[in-house]
Amino acid sequence: MTEHDDAPPDPVPSRRGPSRRLVALVAAGAVALAAAGVTSWALWPDAVDDPYPDVPEGVYHAADVRAFDDLAVMTASSALVVKGTAVEIRPGAEVVYDDGSEAAVTDREVVVDVDKVVYDRYGIGAPETVVVVEGYWENGIGYTREGMPWTEVGQSGYFYLTAPPPDVLATETYAYIHEAGRVLIGSGSAVSIPGHWQEEGPWTAVDHVNGGAPAFETAIQSAADAAAAGEAVPELISVCVPSDPAVEDSAPLCWEE
């Protein structure tokens, strides 16, 4: 049994907006009421104060650099593949974007208690926990990747993780190698994977209709075995830094990793 947690692939149904006059009237009326309604302010203190809400209100679209058609290749490209359970959600590092927006963005970190290391590309070992960055908060609003609902505490599954070399040996903080790199297994062995995983990508070879979670776990293990045996080659991607760190438009220095 499976669940498909992605939004419909195709664009939105047709709909018409309200008349501009009505919108303007409602907005103007709201401003007037709000200005007069200062005493109502105290009615919503909790909603106002939490900079890291538990539920995402925002969605962001993200375009992947990688694409995987083969589970063994996605495995081999990952730094670490673990089976585990989310035990804590917490704010991580805050970064202010130096791009003209001055946006201050805080990573949302999922602490995963590791049950089993399925694949270990770099000889990292067997960590008790790993930290996975999944979404972010900005200005009191949580953002989730489109088609990838936030993992909640208590959810279990498989996590295909990466971090840039060589730091990967010195960090406990990882990111998903791809949107298809999170396999949550729920009650009744329901499997949930982000994106169009039933139509394209590394999971299409798994019998998700009849096989349920056991079919996925078998596929995960045999792909890990193939990667460990060197039968699958990691997919490399180009990454760059500016040749003059102070000049964004200076010639890029790029390499593959």
Binding site: G58, A63, G135, Y136, A175, Y176
Partner: peptide, 22 residues
Amino acid sequence: LIYDAYYGRTGSWQGIAGRTNC
């Protein structure tokens, strides 16, 4: 509003070439 930067290759930017939100 359109921006570019070397946002890096970790965290929510890992493997992501572009991002759009409302």
